[in-house]
């Protein structure tokens, strides 16, 4: 009996693009619909199952082996810090993780002694200040609209993802430094990679080839 390969996709902006990858390599995913009540979609022919979870949960499912493969943004992977194989850069969902703040404090920022940092990514922010800046700061965890924090005096700066930088600009904020470049990644459970290496390697190779062809036609 062939075992199912379980794939966890992040709900939201990456879901449709991720599902499209599998459809393009011939793994039928049905309609991946965020509103659908059905939690698991299966492809009986290829013995593949697919499910949508909150972005932050993708690396958790994959680390525990509940999903063999996952697709999530690199921001999520860095924030979760899970022990998984990161095998492919899928290219889409590209943006940057940055340190940003009001232009007025850009030059004096490094001299401030008690820095307050608002972010949705406390781990990334902490690691950045621990390892790169070698200092302890006050991390303020927020769930959204992080740009508001420096404007209202909640924090001095923010650590967040930016795509175009338009929102920052409109709110009088500037990028101080880029912490990491972000895009969607394919991750694989460490045991699945070994125990199901033939099937998983085929999926990786097929997607890699398909991405290369896409790039060629685009370029």
């Amino acid at each position: 009996m062939t075992r199912y390969i379980n794939i966890a996709l992040a709900k939201g902006r990456l879901a449709e693009l991720s599902a499209g990858l599998f459809r393009d390599i011939g793994i039928f995913c049905g309609d991946v619909d965020d509103d659908s009540r059905k939690l698991i979609i299966s492809d009986e022919e290829n013995k593949v199952r697919l499910f949508l979870v909150k972005p932050g949960d993708v690396p958790v499912y994959v680390e525990y082996g509940a999903a063999d493969i996952g697709i999530a943004g690199r921001d999520t992977l860095l924030e979760e810090g899970r022990n998984v194989y990161e095998v492919l850069d899928l290219g889409f969902g590209a943006c940057r993780m940055v340190l940003a703040g009001p232009g007025a404090i850009k030059d004096s920022f490094s001299l401030m002694s008690n820095k307050r940092v608002a972010t949705k990514y406390p781990r990334i922010a902490r690691e950045y200040f621990d390892h790169k800046m070698k200092e302890s700061v006050e991390i303020i965890k927020l769930s959204g609209s992080v740009e508001l924090a420096p404007l209202t005096g909640l924090s001095d700066v923010i650590v967040d993802i930016v795509e175009s930088g338009k929102t920052l600009k409109e709110n009088g904020l500037e990028v101080f430094e880029t912490i990491a470049s972000i895009s969607a990644r394919m991750i694989v459970n460490r045991v699945s990679m070994k125990m199901e290496s033939d099937r998983i390697n085929k999926i990786i190779a097929d997607i890699r080839q398909m991405l290369a062809e896409r790039n060629k036609t685009a370029g």
């Binding site: 082996g65 459970n189 460490r190 045991v191």
Partner: peptide, 9 residues
């Protein structure tokens, strides 16, 4: 060492 059913070595 790995086996099925568990996501860790």
């Amino acid at each position: 060492g790995f086996t099925y059913g568990i996501g860790y070595p």
